[in-house]
Amino acid sequence: MKTVVQCEVNGEPREALVDPRDTLLQLLRDRLGLTGTKEGCSNGNCGSCTVLMAGAPVCACLVLAGEAEGAHITTIEGVADGNDLHPVQAALIQHGGTQCGFCTPGIVLSAVALLAETPQPTSGQIRHAIAGNICRCTGYDKIVTAIAAAAAEMQAGARQ
């Protein structure tokens, strides 16, 4: 039996009718049209569907849609303020940290979650933070560089 789920996505109240078998990923992509969250494995192994729930990164494919009731969710569509990019996004562009782009939304959210908790991460911490996000194009190098640059940028911004 389908039920209505109410939640807050990217700061906006949303509601949708979901099947008990539906995942949060299906809710976001198919019901709410937020297709920036990608499906790569449906198993929690690739991280393409990473979104934040109460600030914590989760794989949307492992969360039941019903569990989103009352939750605060951030998807890739909610990271930039309009076309005002988050420093992580700007740095990924600048440093060549996105190629095919399919893993990028998930990487962005993992990085945003990291920097919220650890503003000055080491490269080891950055690699750990994105270890649940598989990228097959970049070899990770430029992603790590970009996240480090974003952290520096945010630190500089915070000092001003």
């Binding site: 929690g44 991280g47 729930m53 914590a56 990164p57 989760v58 492992l62 993992s110 996000n133």
Partner: peptide, 9 residues
């Protein structure tokens, strides 16, 4: 266990 994403859950 898994990854940070999995550990959130």
């Amino acid at each position: 266990i898994g990854s940070l994403q999995v550990q959130s859950r």
